[in-house]
Design a binder for these strands. Structure first.
Length: 568
RNA sequence: UGGGGUGUCGUCAAGUGGUAAGACACGGGCCUUUGGAGCCCGCAUUCGGAGGUUCGAAUCCUCCCACCCCAGCCA
């Protein structure tokens, strides 16, 4: 029998799981979980973890739970749990009825704590936060034992019960594990298990005024759920000995923890702190600003769930910290959208073109392919008339080498329409700005083919002036100008690298009439320009707003850059 | 100067003693009614460095170097 149908390349986590299955560890079961804290929005880094956990579970015929690690009522909110669930569903994963909360285990956790107290492995400590810090020692100096470390089991039990009963103030006492104040691993220097927090929890209300720390919750929660492999990020590697200690002292099911490196994306920041700073500093319009790396931002930008899943598969999983080039993500959306997005013509910066020899008042309906990649997507009608708009960038009065679009005297093809030749250029008297082009068309080239076999170097997109719909288009670009927007040594912080052109709003665009009534969120390819989607919030029946998801690969832009011309 | 990790192409990343996959990016070509898409070719004599073991090392050993994480009653 075939080993495992391996999707993508192998990685160390797959290797571990496969070996465990082979050896019958955990009875061959694979049960994973995605454990977010409901204190913020999910971003693409979380997507990596979601795809990993849910993907691995599906791959090995296992299960993946969704568990909210909600142990800190002062930071967590219902709004976040809702957004997290929505984003996971959008990404395409299903946790079935296995929606859990660490807070569901508060009673059990309390019992575990009592069990450790009774075993002489935990004690109530009256030291203040500052004192605990002092007693902890440093990286190179061992800590000192708390004077409360050797209280009797009875006293500890009594004090802990009274902590729970609300007799003490926040911060006045904590429950600590009695491990080793001299351990080189600071996590083992009698870590805090419970703290007093008179705060209302979004799920348990005011039932508790003591809350377990993450360290005393996470491992046991995985254990309670029968998780086999607890996949988490690198920074928890140092905590593993502590989780092992709790699980072993408690003598309960012991999942295997595996750590991997979190995702970093070039030209972007992914830390919660920085993302929050972007939102609060007004650098972006919110958590779902299309420039944000949040799943809600990508959704609004027009990214497809499939493209993000594919990206997460392709970046791989490893322990070395790395920065993935955002070009790979962009490649993944293009790849998906190229196959599925209907094509349409839209002119972002209109330049008026009058076809001199085309009858005034005449209108024709031309047929256009909805997707050359997929004939099954059919065709549509596009109106043509005497006055058109083309892209300003598609005309140059004095074209440089390699520019083979429209220029005085030059002939080009209008996509699905006719060959046209530029015969005159109307310019603003004062500014010299090109206001309008006069062209002639060749009636014999209807549809875009010349019966005499003559060729043109370029094909331009266009819209009929009187039929086109006005629209707003938002052009998005990388949020940062540098691959790794780090903190500067002095002065500037990471916001110094914000790209001033990350959003360009165009309000005099013209799109072909078939776009009338386009559904919010629907995605299109604007031929020769890129992929765009109807903004789900700002677009309405009367005013279409499009977000640029990603540009098409642009050979001309590259040439321009090579020639040192303004990339514009 | 404690402990835990990591170092393979510009960027990710396979590789687990038998003679460096793949992807993105990049360069070149073909094709083209999107300068899109697609297709083809090229792209690490070398795996952080230095020694060593071996017929043979990115893989084993030794030493060294660099980078990341840890001193929250955050997760």
């Amino acid at each position: 029998m075939a080993e495992f149908e391996s999707k993508g390349s192998s990685n160390f986590i797959r290797n571990i799981i496969e070996e465990d299955i082979r050896n019958g560890v955990f009875g061959g079961r694979v049960h994973l979980r995605f454990p977010p804290e409901p204190n913020g929005y999910l971003h693409i880094g979380h997507a990596k973890s979601i795809c990993l956990n849910f993907g691995l579970a599906a791959e090995y015929g296992g299960l993946c739970n969704l568990r909210f690690d909600d142990t800190n009522p002062t930071k967590e909110e219902l709004e976040y749990v809702e957004s997290i669930k929505e984003d996971i569903k959008w990404l395409g994963f299903d946790w079935g009825d296995r929606e859990y909360y660490a807070s569901d285990y508060f009673d059990q956790l309390y019992q575990y704590a009592v069990q450790l107290i009774k075993a002489g492995k935990a004690y109530v400590c009256d030291l203040s936060a500052e004192q605990i810090k002092e007693y902890r020692g440093t990286l190179t100096r061992p800590g000192r034992e708390s004077p409360y470390r050797n209280r009797s089991v009875e006293e500890n039990l009594d004090l802990f019960e009274r902590m729970r009963a609300g007799e003490f103030e926040d911060g006045s006492r904590v429950l600590r594990a009695k491990i080793d104040m001299a351990s080189p691993n600071l996590n083992m220097r009698d870590p805090v298990m419970y703290r007093i927090l008179h705060a209302e929890h979004h799920r348990t209300g005011d039932k508790w005024c003591i809350y377990p720390t993450y360290d005393f919750t996470h491992g046991q929660s995985d254990s309670i759920e029968g998780i086999t492999h607890s996949i988490c990020t690198l920074e928890f590697e140092d905590h593993r000995p502590l989780y092992d200690w709790f699980l072993d002292e408690l003598k309960i099911h012991h999942p295997k923890q595996i750590e991997f490196a979190r995702l970093n994306l070039s030209h972007m920041v992914l830390s919660k702190r920085k993302l929050l700073a972007l939102v609060e500093g007004g650098y972006v319009s919110g958590w779902d600003d299309p420039r944000m790396p949040t799943l809600s931002g990508f959704r609004r930008r027009g990214y497809t769930p499939a493209s993000i899943r594919n990206f997460c598969e392709r970046i791989g999983v490893a322990k070395r910290e790395s920065v993935v080039d955002i070009a790979l993500l962009e490649h993944c959306v293009r790849e998906d959208l190229n196959k599925h997005a209907p094509r349409v013509m839209a002119v972002l910066n209109p330049l008026r073109v009058v076809i001199d020899n085309y009858p005034e008042g005449k209108r024709e309906t031309l047929e256009a392919l909805n997707n050359p990649e997929d004939p099954g997507m059919g065709t549509r009608k596009v109106p043509f008339s005497r006055v058109l708009y083309i892209e300003q960038d598609d005309f140059m009065e004095n074209p440089p080498k390699k520019f083979y679009r429209l220029a005085p005297g030059r002939e080009v093809r209008l996509r699905y329409a006719y060959f046209i030749r530029c015969v005159d250029v109307v310019k603003d008297q004062n500014t010299g700005e090109v206001k309008e082009l006069h062209c002639t068309y060749d009636p014999a080239t209807r549809g875009g083919d010349a019966p005499d076999g003559r060729r043109v170097k370029a094909t331009l997109h266009w819209v009929s002036a009187q039929h086109a719909i006005p629209a707003e288009v938002r052009l998005y670009d990388h949020l940062f100008t540098v691959p790794a927007p780090k903190e500067e040594d002095e002065g500037a912080d990471f916001t110094a690298y914000l790209n001033p052109h990350s959003l360009i709003t165009l309000k005099s665009c013209r799109v072909e009439p078939s776009l009338q009534g386009a559904a919010p969120g629907s995605r299109y390819q604007f031929e020769r320009l890129g992929y765009f989607c109807v903004d789900a919030f700002d677009s309405s029946d009367g005013w279409l707003v499009f977000n640029r998801t990603v540009t098409l690969k642009d050979a001309w832009a590259k040439i321009k850059k090579g020639q040192g011309l303004n990339p514009a």
